[in-house]
């Protein structure tokens, strides 16, 4: 039986791994390549890298850790692909098919698009036709405004006219393989997923929905599986702040009877 997935999300800003709150405050957590090694050892099911930099400056000055300075997000992805042997999704700043091709050729398995899809929905169809639906993830950032959900673009900064359910149906029809659904209100809040948002979207499409935004304890993962039809649960901050986080989260779900891969700790040289 196909398993539900547990997915750490790594947010990268100017080449550094960061913690995010409300899409606004970002705190530096360190080197993204060493972080992914840890997550591999804890047997995460997949990994999602999102580049949230506003400007094109990348700088990891940590030669002591054995990784050279990197001048672009794409080079960081290349480093990461050498140390992780699980499916990797890469998102942020993707504007055309050659951006996608570049990321896939460096070892990404899927790409995640957001603003570009909102600007030109046919981009989803073009990407799916060129590379296959299985590698096209559309990321949706939703925000509650005056009691209604709205899809936001440009890293949460601009309103669109779409409500998340309507937009999710459109991206599915255009050929997206998966939806990464993030709640801006819950980002960094640790109060749990926005269950109402997740269930509305996951019940309106057939493609897998990945939940993101708000996890503060392992039970929040379980709540998403209990109350919504999401196929996967993702989180950023909690996975980076807790030792053996993925392993412990998976153990919690596994021991409580959820349909996840059995927890494992891998020794990686």
């Amino acid at each position: 039986m196909k398993k539900n997935r547990l997915i750490p999300v790594l947010l990268l800003k100017n080449g550094w791994l960061v913690q995010s709150k409300g899409f606004k405050r970002h705190q530096n957590l360190g080197n993204p390549v060493t972080a992914v090694k840890r997550l591999s050892e804890w047997a995460a099911d997949e990994i999602i890298y999102l580049d949230i930099s506003k400007e094109e400056t990348y700088d990891i000055r940590r030669e002591d850790q054995g990784y050279p300075n990197r001048s672009s997000f794409v080079e960081i992805i290349e480093d990461v692909a050498k140390v992780t042997f699980m499916p990797m999704t890469v998102g942020g700043k993707i504007q055309n098919l050659s951006d996608i091709e570049k990321r896939l050729s460096l070892g990404a398995d899927k790409i995640s698009i957001n603003t570009q899809a909102l600007d030109d929905r046919k981009f989803i169809a073009h990407a799916a036709r060129e590379f296959g639906s299985q590698c096209v993830v559309v990321s949706i950032d939703a925000k509650r405004i005056n009691d209604k959900y709205l899809v936001m673009s440009r890293g949460g900064q601009e309103k669109t006219s779409y409500d998340p359910v309507k937009w999710a149906k459109i991206v599915e029809a255009e050929g997206a393989g998966e939806i990464l659904l993030n709640s801006i209100d819950r980002d960094g809040a640790k109060t749990g997923y926005d269950i109402e948002l997740l269930s509305a979207v996951s019940e309106s499409v057939k493609i897998p929905v990945i939940a993101l935004g708000g996890v503060g304890e392992w039970g929040h993962f379980a709540e998403a599986f209990d109350k919504t039809k999401v196929d996967a649960v993702a989180a950023a901050n909690i996975f980076n702040y807790t030792d053996q986080s993925v392993y412990r989260a998976k153990t919690y779900l596994y021991e409580n009877g959820y349909n996840v891969r059995s927890p494992d700790l891998l020794i990686i040289k």
Binding site: M1, K2, R5, D45, G132, G177, K206, D231
Partner: peptide
């Protein structure tokens, strides 16, 4: 069930 079949399966 949706296609492609993506994910961990036994």
């Amino acid at each position: 069930l949706p296609l492609p079949h993506i994910g961990w399966n036994n």
